[in-house]
Write a protein that binds this DNA or RNA. Structure first.
Length: 198
DNA sequence: TCTACGATCTTT
DNA sequence: AAGATCGTAGAT
């Protein structure tokens, strides 16, 4: 399948998040099917890294869309985001989980190789599997080479629920069901707090 | 400079 | 239930 064009990302993060489910992340021999995502939206989302304005860390998140925003969490996890919306909005989709399709022999986690069914459920594991670090900030995902996102068949049924680890946000945004996941798939974290979505 | 704190993961 | 582990942001 072809790479997703830049215009795919140039709309609201929640819409992009929904349509990213089932798409393919590729880096070299490694291919991962996206199974769980979170939208960090423009317009006052108090969980969004851009909520307090532009900083050196979040620079890539302000656009242009279709590029990577990677940041370090808890000092050790490399978190992959795909930048969305128009330039200057400060929005992105966090990749929370993925199903390994190819490159199993190359995929690594913090503990070593791919050795169990629970792996790649959690954003830190996705970043490790793709060997990412903050130097991937601004990397264009719609161009050939390095890290790419490929088109694939749409997902039939989607689950949704509140985002994980954002208790610092306002109650409205803590509750917002902006975490989306592929239904009936084992590569999804925090299943208990997900439910059916229209 | 100093300090507090994570869009987490693992082990206990 | 809590420790690991360190870059970032905001305060000083």
């Amino acid at each position: 399948m072809a790479r997703l064009p830049q215009r795919f990302y140039r709309r609201d993060a929640l819409d992009v998040a929904r349509d990213l489910l089932g798409k393919i992340l590729r880096r070299g021999p490694v291919r991962l099917r996206i199974t769980e995502v979170e939208a960090y939206r423009h317009g006052g989302d108090t969980a969004n890294h851009c909520r307090a304005g532009r900083t050196p860390r979040n620079a890539a998140m302000w656009g242009p869309p279709g590029r990577a925003y990677v940041y370090v969490c808890y000092g050790l996890h490399q978190m992959l985001n795909l930048v969305t919306d128009e330039d200057g909005q400060g929005a992105a989709v966090l990749i929370r989980a993925a199903e390994p399709l190819a490159g199993h022999d190359v995929i690594r986690t913090r503990r070593g190789g791919l050795d169990g069914p629970a792996l790649l459920t959690g954003p830190g594991k996705v970043g490790a599997a793709l060997g990412l670090d903050t130097s991937f900030c601004h990397h264009p995902l719609y161009r050939a080479g390095g890290l790419e996102v490929l088109d694939a068949a749409p997902v039939a049924q989607v689950l949704c629920g509140p985002r994980i680890g954002i208790d610092y946000a306002t109650p409205e945004h803590v509750r917002a069901p902006w975490r989306l996941a592929v239904a009936d798939n084992r590569w999804v974290s925090h299943r208990k707090t997900l439910s059916a979505r229209a």
